[in-house]
Design a protein around this nucleic acid. Structure first.
Lengths: 342, 342
DNA sequence: GCCCGCATTGTTATCGGTCACATTCATGGG
DNA sequence: CCCATGAATGTGACCGATAACAATGCGGGC
């Protein structure tokens, strides 16, 4: 009467009973402890199979003070960079046998980041990855109160935490040098919002490449990542008439710019060359197809995880750089060409 | 000597000691139990504050067999629909006081979905939301072995599980009726991959709208969501010369189509009208700005959560529809207009 | 032949909460 | 005045795993 044949899931004791061993021996088998006789191990594994037993992660985490879940603090946006980074981290975590818990933030400010990390800490995550493309977020990450192991992505400065990011400066250089090589006198730049680190770095890389070539550095046009800001900047540039090459800080802005130039009768690339950044899936099918800079977000995810596992001390490879910068690559399409002969 | 003044985090016993009550009373305060004197409650809350105590979610889940985390099974892609749905769910969950754990799948097949749900079940999530835009995934979700409460998003058939989805048929109708209203004889359709439910529904809605108006139904062009497939279809349509209106199953395909038409010298909307689906951020800045159908993914997220909470029995509102369909809306821009006078 | 050490296995405490039940005390009807 | 009732609080078991330590058996060195 006391037995309820309901579909209750099996726990470690059930396995132990079926295998005729103690629950501790079952635990040893599950955790690959060396001191278990082969025959015993097999008996246990058979029981596990038979009962379709799966260890309870909560109990494991509570007893062992370590969990197989890592937290990710992200930004509540479907912008290509953060979204792709999140997926990259998820993929890397999954392949390493970790689950991921995410908290998205509406505003990436100090208290928001700290609060998010605390929420994740409550769930006893093994560590966290903070996707911090904004200055404020990176600063907040650098001054976390709790003792949670943390890695910061899309940022290269966050107190003494390890960071992982794409080398934005190098990416901007690639874009600018490509345009100079084509024969352009100089290159204009439509930047992203100035509180974004990536936007800053791209400005820096753009300026450095121009200065290294001894070229005039035009004023920076300020955008906000949106196609709208690219559109508006495009109208202004079309009105000037003396611009032959523009480097846009992301593909969406480049898209808006292409549209503005087209409306004004400015031909791309015959009159003006345009280069973007990100290589979003649409880039190859714009009119004209967009020359742009591609970032390897899978690699970013992998390195985030490697850095985190290193912090957790579960990984042997000793030589993980503390601030690796993933190199981007240039994708040349039809939106860039030599300047008009005039 | 036995005391270690290290920054050990406070646990419930520490709070109890400081407040001069039993740990159980602290637990009562934390869980809003009615039978606690106001003065006692305040003393406990003061201690909580003072120690910066945060309850351990693992222990809570283990002891109480309920957790404040819901799992999300998603598709390993940055396609607009799934990505936006994920964010919508996260936002709704956060506002309801739940955390979310995600597992992304490379292939949405039966064993993949079941495996993902099992992985989440191991972590004792309160329930799961399965984003299942493919037939295979929906079928798998409908035959889950475990007893985990589950809701299926982006699907309207999954065994007897509750589902939440945007009304794709209605969305397609909006697009087609808009074009017919403009005076077009009929409307062609570039579909998505046929194993996607949304693609199917959009085909159905398109066909239904044409038939309801007594119009000829052209053959369906098959795409795969990519701008490339839109581009290729666009070339084929341009070659025909008798097409005046096209409804593309998503904006990326519409983008590729716009490019192909432009290359062939076909003017949009003067010669051919094009309507997309999704209203991606880029849509308003294409050449020409794209008329499209917008889906409210925040609403989808909210309803998923409402359905899940209903399953969990923690929510009063009794009248939550079991298969709600969120209505989409038409966004008219410049890519659609009356057919050529000829 | 005795003792030590290692491999193997079992026993019990513990993680940090919640649950079920016991206890205490004030209140009120008969 | 007594006892049933319910509010307020405490005690100990329990959730399902791992950790620490004990116990057992076997082989080898002296």
């Amino acid at each position: 009467m006391s037995q309820q044949p309901a579909a209750r899931v099996a726990v470690i004791k059930d396995v132990a009973r079926l295998a005729g061993v103690s629950h501790q021996t079952v635990s040893r088998v599950l955790n690959d402890h060396p001191s278990v006789r082969d025959e015993t191990r097999e008996r246990v594994l058979r029981a596990v199979q038979q009962l379709n037993y799966r260890p309870n992660a909560l109990a494991r985490g509570l007893a062992g003070r370590r969990s197989r879940v890592i937290g990710v603090v992200s930004f509540d946006t479907i912008l290509h960079g953060p979204a792709a980074t999140l997926l990259g981290i998820e993929r890397a975590a999954r392949h390493a046998g970790y689950g991921i818990s995410i908290v998205a933030l509406e505003r990436l400010d100090r208290s928001g980041v700290i609060d998010a990390v605390n929420r994740l800490a409550e769930q006893s995550v093994a560590g966290v990855v903070i996707i911090a493309p904004l200055l404020t977020a990176a600063a907040a990450a650098g001054s976390l109160p709790s003792g949670v192991p943390a890695v910061v992505a899309e940022s290269d400065m966050a107190g003494d935490l390890p960071t992982v990011s794409v080398d934005q400066v190098a990416g901007a250089r690639l874009a600018v040098e490509h345009l100079l090589d084509l024969g352009h006198e100089t290159v204009w730049h439509l930047s992203g919002p100035k509180d974004w680190l990536e936007a800053r770095d791209r400005v820096d890389g753009w300026r450095a490449a121009l200065e290294a070539a001894g070229r005039r550095v035009p004023p920076v046009l300020a955008g906000d990542w949106s196609p709208r800001s690219g559109y508006e900047a495009g109208r202004r540039l079309a009105d000037r008439g003396d611009v032959t090459a523009v480097f846009c800080a992301n593909d969406q802005q480049a898209l808006g710019m292409l549209r503005a130039l087209h409306e004004r009768g400015v031909r791309v690339p015959e009159d003006v060359s345009v280069v973007g950044f990100d290589d979003i899936p649409e880039a190859a099918y714009l009119s004209p197809p967009l020359t742009t800079v591609r970032q390897d977000f899978d690699e970013v995810g992998r390195r985030c995880l490697a850095a985190l596992l290193e912090l957790l001390g579960v990984d042997r490879p000793p030589g993980v750089a503390r601030h690796p910068r993933v190199p981007p690559s240039l994708v040349v399409r039809a939106s860039s060409g030599p300047p008009p002969a005039a």
